[in-house]
Design a protein around this nucleic acid. Structure first.
Length: 418
RNA sequence: CGGGGCGUGGCGCAGUCUGGUAGCGCACCUGCAUGGGGUGUAGGUGGUCGGAGGUUCAAAUCCUCUCGCCCCGACCA
Protein backbone atom coordinates (compact mmCIF):
# COMPACT_ATOMS: atom_id res chain seq x y z
CA UNK A 1 0.00 0.00 0.00
CA UNK A 2 1.16 3.47 -0.81
CA UNK A 3 0.47 5.99 1.91
CA UNK A 4 -0.50 8.61 -0.65
CA UNK A 5 -3.43 6.40 -1.65
CA UNK A 6 -4.52 5.41 1.85
CA UNK A 7 -7.55 7.23 3.19
CA UNK A 8 -6.06 8.50 6.35
CA UNK A 9 -5.00 11.73 7.94
CA UNK A 10 -2.94 11.71 11.08
CA UNK A 11 -3.77 14.39 13.59
CA UNK A 12 -1.32 16.20 15.76
CA UNK A 13 -3.93 16.91 18.33
CA UNK A 14 -6.57 14.49 19.52
CA UNK A 15 -10.21 15.57 19.38
CA UNK A 16 -11.35 16.92 22.73
CA UNK A 17 -13.92 14.13 23.06
CA UNK A 18 -11.28 11.48 23.54
CA UNK A 19 -10.29 10.68 27.07
CA UNK A 20 -8.27 7.47 27.16
CA UNK A 21 -5.08 6.82 25.26
CA UNK A 22 -6.41 4.15 22.92
CA UNK A 23 -9.25 6.39 21.82
CA UNK A 24 -6.93 9.35 21.28
CA UNK A 25 -4.43 7.30 19.32
CA UNK A 26 -7.05 5.59 17.19
CA UNK A 27 -8.41 8.99 16.22
CA UNK A 28 -4.98 10.53 15.70
CA UNK A 29 -3.77 7.59 13.63
CA UNK A 30 -6.89 7.69 11.47
CA UNK A 31 -8.23 4.26 12.46
CA UNK A 32 -11.79 5.19 13.39
CA UNK A 33 -14.23 8.07 13.19
CA UNK A 34 -17.30 8.58 15.31
CA UNK A 35 -20.71 8.69 13.66
CA UNK A 36 -22.87 8.96 16.78
CA UNK A 37 -22.45 8.23 20.46
CA UNK A 38 -20.97 4.75 20.75
CA UNK A 39 -21.10 4.19 16.98
CA UNK A 40 -17.99 4.28 14.82
CA UNK A 41 -16.77 3.90 11.27
CA UNK A 42 -13.61 1.87 10.78
CA UNK A 43 -11.26 3.57 8.33
CA UNK A 44 -8.96 1.44 6.16
CA UNK A 45 -6.10 1.49 8.63
CA UNK A 46 -8.23 0.49 11.62
CA UNK A 47 -10.16 -2.06 9.64
CA UNK A 48 -6.96 -3.84 8.64
CA UNK A 49 -6.18 -4.43 12.30
CA UNK A 50 -9.74 -5.41 13.11
CA UNK A 51 -9.66 -7.99 10.33
CA UNK A 52 -6.37 -9.41 11.58
CA UNK A 53 -7.82 -9.89 15.04
CA UNK A 54 -10.85 -11.50 13.47
CA UNK A 55 -8.72 -13.84 11.37
CA UNK A 56 -6.76 -15.15 14.34
CA UNK A 57 -9.94 -15.79 16.29
CA UNK A 58 -11.49 -17.55 13.30
CA UNK A 59 -8.47 -19.77 12.75
CA UNK A 60 -8.34 -20.89 16.37
CA UNK A 61 -12.08 -21.44 16.60
CA UNK A 62 -12.00 -23.52 13.44
CA UNK A 63 -9.13 -25.61 14.70
CA UNK A 64 -11.16 -26.29 17.87
CA UNK A 65 -13.78 -27.75 15.54
CA UNK A 66 -16.19 -24.91 15.98
CA UNK A 67 -18.27 -24.25 12.87
CA UNK A 68 -18.76 -20.72 11.62
CA UNK A 69 -22.25 -19.51 10.80
CA UNK A 70 -23.84 -16.09 10.40
CA UNK A 71 -27.08 -15.30 12.17
CA UNK A 72 -29.38 -12.32 11.55
CA UNK A 73 -28.69 -9.12 13.43
CA UNK A 74 -32.42 -8.42 13.58
CA UNK A 75 -34.39 -10.86 15.71
CA UNK A 76 -38.13 -11.32 16.22
CA UNK A 77 -39.59 -10.47 19.64
CA UNK A 78 -41.35 -13.84 19.89
CA UNK A 79 -38.10 -15.68 20.51
CA UNK A 80 -37.18 -13.26 23.27
CA UNK A 81 -40.59 -13.64 24.85
CA UNK A 82 -40.10 -17.38 24.81
CA UNK A 83 -36.88 -17.09 26.82
CA UNK A 84 -38.52 -14.44 29.02
CA UNK A 85 -35.84 -11.94 28.16
CA UNK A 86 -38.01 -9.52 26.16
CA UNK A 87 -39.21 -8.03 29.44
CA UNK A 88 -36.09 -8.73 31.49
CA UNK A 89 -33.51 -7.14 29.23
CA UNK A 90 -34.60 -3.55 29.63
CA UNK A 91 -33.71 -0.48 27.58
CA UNK A 92 -30.31 -1.86 26.61
CA UNK A 93 -32.19 -3.94 24.04
CA UNK A 94 -32.74 -1.83 20.95
CA UNK A 95 -36.29 -2.56 19.84
CA UNK A 96 -37.64 -1.77 16.41
CA UNK A 97 -40.90 -2.29 14.61
CA UNK A 98 -41.26 -3.18 10.98
CA UNK A 99 -43.89 -1.74 8.63
CA UNK A 100 -46.44 -4.22 9.90
CA UNK A 101 -45.77 -3.11 13.45
CA UNK A 102 -44.21 -6.45 14.23
CA UNK A 103 -41.67 -6.21 17.00
CA UNK A 104 -37.99 -6.96 16.55
CA UNK A 105 -34.75 -6.19 18.28
CA UNK A 106 -31.23 -5.62 17.06
CA UNK A 107 -29.41 -8.56 18.61
CA UNK A 108 -27.19 -7.79 21.59
CA UNK A 109 -26.44 -11.52 21.81
CA UNK A 110 -27.76 -14.64 20.12
CA UNK A 111 -28.75 -17.31 22.63
CA UNK A 112 -32.36 -17.25 21.44
CA UNK A 113 -31.57 -17.49 17.75
CA UNK A 114 -28.97 -20.22 18.13
CA UNK A 115 -31.20 -22.22 20.45
CA UNK A 116 -34.04 -21.95 17.99
CA UNK A 117 -31.75 -23.08 15.21
CA UNK A 118 -30.43 -26.06 17.10
CA UNK A 119 -33.82 -27.26 18.27
CA UNK A 120 -34.93 -27.31 14.63
CA UNK A 121 -31.80 -28.82 13.15
CA UNK A 122 -30.40 -31.23 15.70
CA UNK A 123 -32.27 -34.50 16.09
CA UNK A 124 -29.85 -37.00 17.47
CA UNK A 125 -27.14 -37.37 20.08
CA UNK A 126 -24.92 -38.37 17.17
CA UNK A 127 -24.79 -34.75 16.08
CA UNK A 128 -23.51 -33.66 19.48
CA UNK A 129 -21.59 -32.05 20.95
CA UNK A 130 -21.54 -29.16 18.53
CA UNK A 131 -19.92 -25.73 18.70
CA UNK A 132 -21.27 -22.99 16.45
CA UNK A 133 -19.93 -19.49 16.25
CA UNK A 134 -20.19 -16.25 14.35
CA UNK A 135 -18.32 -12.98 14.10
CA UNK A 136 -20.89 -10.29 13.84
CA UNK A 137 -21.98 -6.78 14.69
CA UNK A 138 -23.90 -6.52 17.93
CA UNK A 139 -25.84 -3.61 19.34
CA UNK A 140 -26.34 -2.91 23.01
CA UNK A 141 -27.90 0.40 23.88
CA UNK A 142 -25.49 1.03 26.73
CA UNK A 143 -26.55 3.40 29.45
CA UNK A 144 -23.37 5.29 28.84
CA UNK A 145 -21.10 4.39 25.96
CA UNK A 146 -17.60 5.69 26.50
CA UNK A 147 -13.93 5.49 25.66
CA UNK A 148 -14.35 5.19 21.93
CA UNK A 149 -14.39 1.66 20.62
CA UNK A 150 -13.70 0.31 24.12
CA UNK A 151 -17.30 0.53 25.20
CA UNK A 152 -19.34 1.29 22.15
CA UNK A 153 -22.98 0.51 21.53
CA UNK A 154 -22.33 -1.10 18.18
CA UNK A 155 -19.40 -3.48 18.28
CA UNK A 156 -17.97 -6.58 16.66
CA UNK A 157 -18.24 -9.74 18.68
CA UNK A 158 -17.32 -13.35 18.25
CA UNK A 159 -20.02 -15.37 19.93
CA UNK A 160 -19.94 -19.14 20.14
CA UNK A 161 -22.47 -21.58 21.53
CA UNK A 162 -22.09 -25.24 22.34
CA UNK A 163 -24.76 -27.90 22.86
CA UNK A 164 -24.40 -31.14 24.78
CA UNK A 165 -26.19 -34.26 25.94
CA UNK A 166 -24.81 -33.90 29.48
CA UNK A 167 -22.72 -31.78 31.82
CA UNK A 168 -19.58 -33.86 31.35
CA UNK A 169 -19.58 -33.07 27.66
CA UNK A 170 -20.21 -29.41 28.42
CA UNK A 171 -17.33 -29.37 30.88
CA UNK A 172 -15.04 -30.90 28.28
CA UNK A 173 -15.93 -28.33 25.66
CA UNK A 174 -15.70 -25.55 28.19
CA UNK A 175 -12.14 -26.56 28.93
CA UNK A 176 -11.39 -26.77 25.24
CA UNK A 177 -12.70 -23.24 24.76
CA UNK A 178 -10.68 -22.05 27.73
CA UNK A 179 -7.57 -23.43 26.05
CA UNK A 180 -8.60 -21.97 22.71
CA UNK A 181 -9.05 -18.53 24.23
CA UNK A 182 -5.63 -18.75 25.80
CA UNK A 183 -4.18 -19.59 22.40
CA UNK A 184 -6.03 -16.71 20.77
CA UNK A 185 -4.83 -14.07 23.20
CA UNK A 186 -1.31 -15.46 23.07
CA UNK A 187 -1.31 -15.26 19.27
CA UNK A 188 -2.67 -11.73 19.45
CA UNK A 189 0.52 -10.89 21.32
CA UNK A 190 -1.28 -9.64 24.42
CA UNK A 191 -0.55 -10.11 28.11
CA UNK A 192 -3.73 -11.48 29.61
CA UNK A 193 -5.21 -13.39 32.52
CA UNK A 194 -8.20 -15.65 32.85
CA UNK A 195 -10.17 -15.14 36.04
CA UNK A 196 -13.10 -16.84 37.71
CA UNK A 197 -16.11 -14.62 37.30
CA UNK A 198 -19.73 -14.17 38.07
CA UNK A 199 -21.93 -15.08 35.20
CA UNK A 200 -23.99 -11.89 35.30
CA UNK A 201 -27.07 -11.40 33.18
CA UNK A 202 -26.51 -14.18 30.71
CA UNK A 203 -27.25 -16.74 33.37
CA UNK A 204 -25.76 -20.10 34.14
CA UNK A 205 -23.29 -21.55 36.56
CA UNK A 206 -19.62 -21.43 35.82
CA UNK A 207 -17.74 -18.73 34.00
CA UNK A 208 -14.31 -17.25 33.35
CA UNK A 209 -13.39 -13.82 32.11
CA UNK A 210 -10.33 -13.12 30.00
CA UNK A 211 -8.67 -9.82 30.75
CA UNK A 212 -6.04 -7.96 28.81
CA UNK A 213 -3.78 -6.47 31.45
CA UNK A 214 -3.52 -2.69 31.29
CA UNK A 215 -3.11 0.04 33.87
CA UNK A 216 -6.10 1.83 32.47
CA UNK A 217 -8.35 -1.24 32.67
CA UNK A 218 -11.78 -0.70 34.14
CA UNK A 219 -11.84 -3.98 36.00
CA UNK A 220 -9.81 -4.93 38.97
CA UNK A 221 -8.66 -8.52 39.07
CA UNK A 222 -7.06 -10.41 41.88
CA UNK A 223 -4.70 -13.35 41.77
CA UNK A 224 -2.73 -15.37 44.29
CA UNK A 225 1.02 -15.04 44.33
CA UNK A 226 1.51 -18.73 43.71
CA UNK A 227 -0.65 -18.46 40.61
CA UNK A 228 -3.32 -21.01 41.45
CA UNK A 229 -6.15 -18.54 41.87
CA UNK A 230 -7.39 -15.60 39.83
CA UNK A 231 -10.74 -13.88 40.08
CA UNK A 232 -12.56 -10.66 39.56
CA UNK A 233 -12.42 -8.46 42.65
CA UNK A 234 -16.08 -9.00 43.53
CA UNK A 235 -15.76 -12.72 43.21
CA UNK A 236 -12.55 -12.85 45.23
CA UNK A 237 -14.16 -10.93 48.09
CA UNK A 238 -17.07 -13.34 48.13
CA UNK A 239 -14.91 -16.46 47.92
CA UNK A 240 -12.06 -15.70 50.22
CA UNK A 241 -13.21 -13.16 52.75
CA UNK A 242 -11.01 -10.38 54.06
CA UNK A 243 -8.49 -12.51 55.89
CA UNK A 244 -6.70 -14.01 52.90
CA UNK A 245 -6.19 -10.69 51.22
CA UNK A 246 -2.50 -10.54 52.08
CA UNK A 247 -1.73 -13.49 49.84
CA UNK A 248 -3.22 -11.75 46.83
CA UNK A 249 -2.00 -9.38 44.20
CA UNK A 250 -4.11 -6.96 42.25
CA UNK A 251 -3.96 -5.88 38.64
CA UNK A 252 -6.18 -3.94 36.31
CA UNK A 253 -7.64 -5.54 33.26
CA UNK A 254 -9.89 -4.99 30.29
CA UNK A 255 -12.44 -7.74 29.83
CA UNK A 256 -12.16 -9.03 26.29
CA UNK A 257 -13.53 -12.53 26.62
CA UNK A 258 -16.06 -14.37 28.71
CA UNK A 259 -16.95 -18.02 28.70
CA UNK A 260 -20.01 -19.48 30.42
CA UNK A 261 -21.56 -22.78 31.23
CA UNK A 262 -25.19 -21.95 30.68
CA UNK A 263 -26.64 -25.31 31.60
CA UNK A 264 -30.27 -25.59 30.53
CA UNK A 265 -31.38 -22.00 31.04
CA UNK A 266 -32.33 -21.50 27.38
CA UNK A 267 -32.75 -25.07 26.30
CA UNK A 268 -35.45 -25.73 28.88
CA UNK A 269 -37.43 -22.53 28.37
CA UNK A 270 -37.15 -23.01 24.63
CA UNK A 271 -37.68 -26.77 24.71
CA UNK A 272 -34.49 -27.84 23.05
CA UNK A 273 -34.39 -31.59 23.20
CA UNK A 274 -32.70 -34.41 21.44
CA UNK A 275 -32.87 -38.19 21.50
CA UNK A 276 -30.18 -40.16 23.30
CA UNK A 277 -28.93 -43.61 22.33
CA UNK A 278 -31.93 -45.19 24.07
CA UNK A 279 -34.39 -43.05 22.18
CA UNK A 280 -35.11 -40.99 25.23
CA UNK A 281 -35.66 -37.23 24.89
CA UNK A 282 -33.02 -35.21 26.74
CA UNK A 283 -32.91 -31.46 27.38
CA UNK A 284 -29.64 -30.19 25.97
CA UNK A 285 -27.12 -28.37 28.07
CA UNK A 286 -25.36 -25.32 26.71
CA UNK A 287 -22.22 -23.24 26.87
CA UNK A 288 -21.52 -19.85 25.39
CA UNK A 289 -18.25 -18.12 24.64
CA UNK A 290 -17.82 -14.47 23.74
CA UNK A 291 -14.94 -12.32 22.58
CA UNK A 292 -15.14 -8.57 22.09
CA UNK A 293 -13.36 -8.38 18.76
CA UNK A 294 -13.43 -4.62 18.34
CA UNK A 295 -12.66 -4.05 22.00
CA UNK A 296 -9.48 -6.11 21.59
CA UNK A 297 -8.14 -3.46 19.22
CA UNK A 298 -8.53 -0.76 21.88
CA UNK A 299 -7.25 -3.03 24.63
CA UNK A 300 -4.16 -3.89 22.59
CA UNK A 301 -3.37 -0.19 22.31
CA UNK A 302 -3.98 0.42 26.00
CA UNK A 303 -1.41 -2.24 26.70
CA UNK A 304 1.04 -1.35 23.93
CA UNK A 305 1.83 2.30 23.36
CA UNK A 306 4.45 4.88 24.19
CA UNK A 307 4.73 8.66 24.01
CA UNK A 308 5.09 8.46 20.21
CA UNK A 309 2.01 6.39 19.57
CA UNK A 310 0.86 2.83 19.11
CA UNK A 311 3.29 -0.10 19.36
CA UNK A 312 1.40 -2.92 17.64
CA UNK A 313 2.12 -6.56 18.31
CA UNK A 314 3.21 -7.84 14.89
CA UNK A 315 0.27 -10.23 14.62
CA UNK A 316 -2.31 -7.45 14.47
CA UNK A 317 -0.41 -4.50 13.05
CA UNK A 318 -2.19 -2.92 10.07
CA UNK A 319 1.10 -3.15 8.20
CA UNK A 320 4.22 -5.07 9.11
CA UNK A 321 6.77 -2.83 7.52
CA UNK A 322 7.08 0.87 6.70
CA UNK A 323 9.34 2.08 3.92
CA UNK A 324 10.65 5.59 4.46
CA UNK A 325 12.59 7.11 1.58
CA UNK A 326 14.48 10.26 2.41
CA UNK A 327 14.38 12.67 -0.51
CA UNK A 328 12.70 10.30 -2.93
CA UNK A 329 11.09 13.14 -4.80
CA UNK A 330 14.46 14.48 -5.87
CA UNK A 331 16.45 11.33 -6.42
CA UNK A 332 15.36 9.09 -9.25
CA UNK A 333 17.88 6.48 -8.26
CA UNK A 334 16.50 6.39 -4.73
CA UNK A 335 12.92 6.19 -5.97
CA UNK A 336 13.79 3.29 -8.24
CA UNK A 337 15.44 1.44 -5.39
CA UNK A 338 12.46 1.97 -3.08
CA UNK A 339 9.83 1.05 -5.64
CA UNK A 340 11.75 -2.02 -6.65
CA UNK A 341 11.96 -3.29 -3.07
CA UNK A 342 8.35 -2.30 -2.47
CA UNK A 343 7.21 -4.40 -5.40
CA UNK A 344 9.32 -7.31 -4.32
CA UNK A 345 8.02 -7.16 -0.74
CA UNK A 346 4.46 -7.03 -2.01
CA UNK A 347 5.10 -10.08 -4.16
CA UNK A 348 6.42 -11.82 -1.07
CA UNK A 349 3.20 -11.08 0.81
CA UNK A 350 4.77 -8.69 3.25
CA UNK A 351 2.23 -6.10 4.44
CA UNK A 352 4.25 -3.08 3.48
CA UNK A 353 3.34 0.59 3.62
CA UNK A 354 5.36 2.90 1.40
CA UNK A 355 5.53 6.46 2.67
CA UNK A 356 5.57 8.06 -0.76
CA UNK A 357 4.33 11.50 0.23
CA UNK A 358 6.62 14.44 -0.36
CA UNK A 359 7.26 15.07 3.31
CA UNK A 360 10.24 15.85 5.45
CA UNK A 361 11.80 12.80 7.10
CA UNK A 362 10.68 13.87 10.56
CA UNK A 363 7.05 13.93 9.49
CA UNK A 364 7.32 10.48 7.96
CA UNK A 365 9.00 9.04 11.04
CA UNK A 366 6.40 10.51 13.35
CA UNK A 367 3.49 9.26 11.30
CA UNK A 368 4.81 5.72 11.06
CA UNK A 369 5.48 5.70 14.78
CA UNK A 370 2.05 7.06 15.62
CA UNK A 371 0.44 4.37 13.47
CA UNK A 372 2.65 1.86 15.23
CA UNK A 373 4.09 -0.16 12.36
CA UNK A 374 6.44 -2.72 13.94
CA UNK A 375 9.30 -2.55 11.44
CA UNK A 376 10.75 0.12 9.21
CA UNK A 377 13.33 0.51 6.48
CA UNK A 378 14.83 3.92 5.76
CA UNK A 379 16.32 4.62 2.32
CA UNK A 380 18.87 7.36 1.83
CA UNK A 381 21.35 8.42 -0.82
CA UNK A 382 24.38 7.61 1.28
CA UNK A 383 22.89 4.27 2.22
CA UNK A 384 22.41 3.40 -1.44
CA UNK A 385 26.07 4.16 -2.10
CA UNK A 386 26.90 1.35 0.29
CA UNK A 387 24.08 -0.85 -1.00
CA UNK A 388 22.40 -0.59 2.38
CA UNK A 389 19.19 0.48 4.03
CA UNK A 390 18.56 1.16 7.67
CA UNK A 391 16.36 -1.07 9.78
CA UNK A 392 14.67 -0.20 13.04
CA UNK A 393 11.98 -1.93 15.08
CA UNK A 394 9.23 0.24 16.51
CA UNK A 395 9.89 -1.01 20.01
CA UNK A 396 13.67 -0.63 19.90
CA UNK A 397 15.93 2.38 20.07
CA UNK A 398 18.83 1.22 17.91
CA UNK A 399 19.13 1.18 14.15
CA UNK A 400 21.05 -1.29 12.10
CA UNK A 401 22.20 -1.19 8.52
CA UNK A 402 21.46 -4.12 6.29
CA UNK A 403 22.25 -4.91 2.68
CA UNK A 404 19.40 -4.19 0.31
CA UNK A 405 19.74 -7.53 -1.40
CA UNK A 406 19.19 -9.27 1.92
CA UNK A 407 16.25 -7.09 2.92
CA UNK A 408 13.49 -9.53 2.03
CA UNK A 409 14.97 -12.48 3.91
CA UNK A 410 15.85 -10.20 6.78
CA UNK A 411 12.38 -8.77 7.25
CA UNK A 412 10.59 -12.07 6.77
CA UNK A 413 12.72 -13.48 9.54
CA UNK A 414 11.96 -10.50 11.78
CA UNK A 415 8.22 -10.78 11.22
CA UNK A 416 8.26 -14.51 11.81
CA UNK A 417 10.11 -14.20 15.10
CA UNK A 418 7.99 -11.48 16.52
C1' C B 1 -31.61 8.43 34.64
C1' G B 2 -28.97 11.84 38.49
C1' G B 3 -24.60 15.26 38.70
C1' G B 4 -20.97 18.29 35.77
C1' G B 5 -19.30 20.34 31.02
C1' C B 6 -19.25 21.53 25.77
C1' G B 7 -21.23 22.64 20.58
C1' U B 8 -17.50 28.58 16.10
C1' G B 9 -13.85 25.58 8.59
C1' G B 10 -11.18 18.43 8.93
C1' C B 11 -8.57 18.93 14.23
C1' G B 12 -7.26 22.21 18.54
C1' C B 13 -8.95 26.85 20.20
C1' A B 14 -10.07 32.60 20.78
C1' G B 15 -14.22 35.82 20.24
C1' U B 16 -19.93 35.45 23.92
C1' C B 17 -19.70 38.74 30.13
C1' U B 18 -19.57 44.61 27.69
C1' G B 19 -24.46 42.97 20.26
C1' G B 20 -21.62 46.29 15.04
C1' U B 21 -21.67 41.35 10.55
C1' A B 22 -15.89 35.82 12.17
C1' G B 23 -10.22 35.16 13.83
C1' C B 24 -5.59 32.20 15.26
C1' G B 25 -2.54 27.52 15.15
C1' C B 26 -2.43 22.73 12.73
C1' A B 27 -4.12 20.20 8.38
C1' C B 28 -5.24 20.92 3.01
C1' C B 29 -3.90 23.40 -2.28
C1' U B 30 0.08 26.32 -5.32
C1' G B 31 5.16 28.46 -6.03
C1' C B 32 10.26 28.88 -4.35
C1' A B 33 13.94 27.21 -1.07
C1' U B 34 15.03 22.92 2.18
C1' G B 35 15.82 17.48 2.62
C1' G B 36 17.72 12.09 8.73
C1' G B 37 13.14 13.78 13.51
C1' G B 38 6.56 17.37 12.80
C1' U B 39 11.67 22.99 7.97
C1' G B 40 11.28 28.10 6.06
C1' U B 41 8.83 31.55 3.01
C1' A B 42 4.98 33.76 -0.21
C1' G B 43 0.15 33.11 -1.75
C1' G B 44 -4.55 30.36 -1.49
C1' U B 45 -9.24 27.01 -0.58
C1' G B 46 -12.65 26.20 3.24
C1' G B 47 -17.02 28.20 8.33
C1' U B 48 -22.49 32.32 9.12
C1' C B 49 -20.89 30.28 14.51
C1' G B 50 -25.57 22.64 16.30
C1' G B 51 -31.01 23.80 14.97
C1' A B 52 -35.71 26.67 15.39
C1' G B 53 -38.16 30.86 17.09
C1' G B 54 -37.83 35.70 19.42
C1' U B 55 -35.74 40.79 20.93
C1' U B 56 -33.04 44.65 18.08
C1' C B 57 -31.52 49.30 13.00
C1' A B 58 -28.01 45.17 13.84
C1' A B 59 -27.17 38.60 17.05
C1' A B 60 -21.65 33.74 17.32
C1' U B 61 -22.75 37.29 21.33
C1' C B 62 -29.16 38.67 24.68
C1' C B 63 -34.05 35.57 25.63
C1' U B 64 -37.08 30.89 24.83
C1' C B 65 -37.37 26.10 23.05
C1' U B 66 -34.86 22.07 20.93
C1' C B 67 -31.03 18.61 19.08
C1' G B 68 -26.27 16.54 19.68
C1' C B 69 -21.60 15.25 22.11
C1' C B 70 -18.21 14.38 26.35
C1' C B 71 -17.00 13.32 31.64
C1' C B 72 -18.47 11.03 36.87
C1' G B 73 -22.06 6.98 38.90
C1' A B 74 -25.40 2.06 38.30
C1' C B 75 -24.75 -2.12 33.46
C1' C B 76 -21.56 -4.97 30.04
C1' A B 77 -17.69 -8.34 25.10
Amino acid sequence: MKLSKLLTATLREAPADAEIISHKLMLRAGMIRQLASGIYTWLPLGYRTLKKVEAIIREEMNSANAQEILMPAIQPAELWRESKRWDQYGPELLRVNDRHEREFCFGPTHEEVITDLVRREVRSYKQLPIILYQIQTKFRDEIRPRFGIMRSREFLMKDAYSFHMNDESLQETYEKMYATYSKIFTRLGLKFRAVIADSGNIGGDKSHEFHVLAESGEDQIVFSKNGDYAASLERAKADLGEKDASALECARGIEVGHIFQLGTKYSSSMKTNCLDEHGKSITLTMGCYGIGVSRIVAAAIEQNHDEKGIVWPTSIAPFQLALIPVNMHKSIRLRDAVISLYDELSNNNVDVLLNDRNERPGVMFSDMELIGIPHRFVFSEKGLDAGEIEYKARQDDENQNIQIKKAITFIKEKIKNN
